[in-house]
Design a protein around this nucleic acid. Structure first.
Lengths: 323, 323
DNA sequence: CCCTATATACTCAATTCGAGTATATCAAAA
DNA sequence: TTTTGATATACTCGAATTGAGTATATAGGG
């Protein structure tokens, strides 16, 4: 066992919100091409906890004061943080998810909101199956599954076709699991199909010629952190009342539905959504209405904050449905 | 911003299994009193990923080769790792959950299995509400809720009575959420009611005299890691087929039920459990029976490994029920 | 006043759930 | 051999939840 190399802990925040039915994430754009999440090293002397460190960095870099924050995952693999050679300390990156309600009006220094689905276009099924899946991703992945070299398959628990089935619903009778966002991104990375794989010098990336850009890339492993955030959020939506962290004080049920759809990436059955939310006791009527919807005025609701005190508090349950 | 202090990343494994209806965790017992989880620092030069580092440390310390491994959480707070003064590098600890089927027969060097509920006795409700809750914990916590000093309450989102309600179901109409294992342990720590709080020199710990020992303590923040592991496992049980990682190759449905009960800490309705598991398609009949149960022989089942390839694969759903 | 767009309410069959009762099959006791 | 006790497995039934609709209400614009 050698003398431990110097380690740096990077704190990364995926700060997300929804506006006009578009889920967004806060990014800093330093060098035009590679967007980045707000980021900074953990300094135990200045930060009593990791959470506090994260909040400090975000405040410093964007001027934003975070509310709801949740730790996602700690990534330690070498090489995913490359960009410049491989010098410097080894960076272990801790990803965080932060939710904001209304996107701040104030000017954010060096930061702006970018759409989730610009980075991960295959994740938005609200208008049906995205073309990029049929046209680009599926053919390439099938090719990748066939050219499975023996040394790659050695001890893998699953074969490549099995993995395609699970992650991308490629194969008979499989269907799309909206929560497998991270697994999908990682599979694309492993197959060398995203720009970060090329940047990190992954061998698989060299197999491909004239590769179209599959989603906007990010610096470091930030697109992986974003994928983790979306996975977590899509899962949590169903069993904790987290959507409300991303809503204004009052809202109509359809606005709530639009937000859930934006996050989960697919359509819901309107009447049943309404029934579930209303009967679930998560919201209460304010008495006011909004006439901005075009047709009959919509009742305005507010989140019942006290459900947080109640039992295993339920989320916004939902099954996919027609528009 | 000062020069970053030296950081060490500690990898800790909560390796759990169930035997004879008792859930256990692998501990090393160095100094008699303070049990510890298998533990070691992450060394980026030797370990390509955090997971690999963890597996190496466990192999080295116990001789055990891990199968199912899942990262839990990364804790960075100062002071929770104390024990000896506050010298040395700052330690950030990454907790892992590992599941093992049959506990190994081989002699484990310097390690043995300890019962979960020896460390967290208030978590086992299989024989009804544990006495330690009624007799020791609830009175002390109520006292703690009352003596809420102004400087503690300053910016907390929830009041102490509210927190007792949520975590310990103290108060009217609240009931016990089996998944809040970590929240409960952390509350006890904050209230100074567990030995680790005293060890770490927490102020709250000094308020109490002749405090009975609430569960067996552990070294460092390992009881917190264990609590995180149990929380995660209890939650995951319901939506992923993870129990089967902890079962032998073939098993009866009642054995499966006993395992689920051991983990979740409460009883299930036997007939409904059987219905859910059988109809859920998670298991298949082997054709053999086991006569070791006393009465009518029980059919033996095996886990259908291929469900892992299927859709959002469901776990062992369950609601509490009578014995 | 009618048309269109949206919101909200109600319906209904299918399925799942919770909580039982009933029956089957072993081993050991009588 | 029969009884008894223990356990496993099967079946029942009302209540609740779900999926997928149809029906009605209320705004604004011609």
């Amino acid at each position: 066992m050698k003398e431990p190399a110097s380690i740096e802990i990077g704190l990364n925040a995926a700060i997300v919100g929804v506006r006009d039915s578009q889920p967004n994430v806060l990014v800093t754009r330093e060098g035009e091409k590679w967007d980045a999440l707000p980021y900074g090293p953990f300094s135990p002397l200045d930060h009593r906890t990791l959470d506090i460190g994260l909040r400090n960095w975000v405040r410093e870099q964007t001027g934003l004061e975070l509310g709801y924050v949740e730790q996602l995952y700690t990534f330690g693999d070498r090489g995913r943080h490359a960009q410049r050679g491989d010098a410097g300390p080894h960076v272990v990156s801790v990803g965080y998810l932060a939710l904001i309600g209304e996107e701040p009006q104030m000017e954010l220094k060096d930061a702006s909101f970018g759409r989730w689905y610009a980075y991960l276009p295959w994740e938005d099924w609200r208008a049906g199956k995205p073309d990029i899946l049929t046209d680009e991703i599926e053919p390439k992945l099938k090719q990748w599954a066939e050219q499975c070299e023996s040394d790659d398959a050695r001890e893998a628990a699953l074969t490549r076709p099995e993995r395609l089935r699970i992650c991308f619903a490629i194969g008979s009778g499989a269907d799309w699991d909206e929560e497998k966002v991270l697994e999908r991104y990682e599979l694309l990375y492993e197959a060398g199909l995203v720009a970060e794989a090329m940047r990190d010098g992954r061998r698989a990336a060299n197999h491909w010629k004239d590769l179209p850009q599959l989603g906007r890339p990010m610096q470091f492993d930030h697109r992986r952190v974003l994928s983790t955030a979306i996975s977590r959020l899509r899962g949590k939506l169903k069993y904790r009342p987290v959507v409300f962290e991303m809503m204004p004080e009052t809202f109509t049920l359809f606005e709530l539905q639009k937000t859930v759809e934006a996050i989960s990436g697919h359509h819901l059955h309107k009447q049943n959504f309404r029934r579930l939310v209303e009967n679930g006791g998560l919201v209460e009527n304010t008495g006011d209405v909004s006439t901005e919807t075009g047709g009959r005025p919509a009742k305005l609701f507010r989140f019942r904050r006290d459900v947080l005190l109640e039992r295993p508090s339920i989320g916004v349950r939902m099954k996919a449905g027609r528009a």
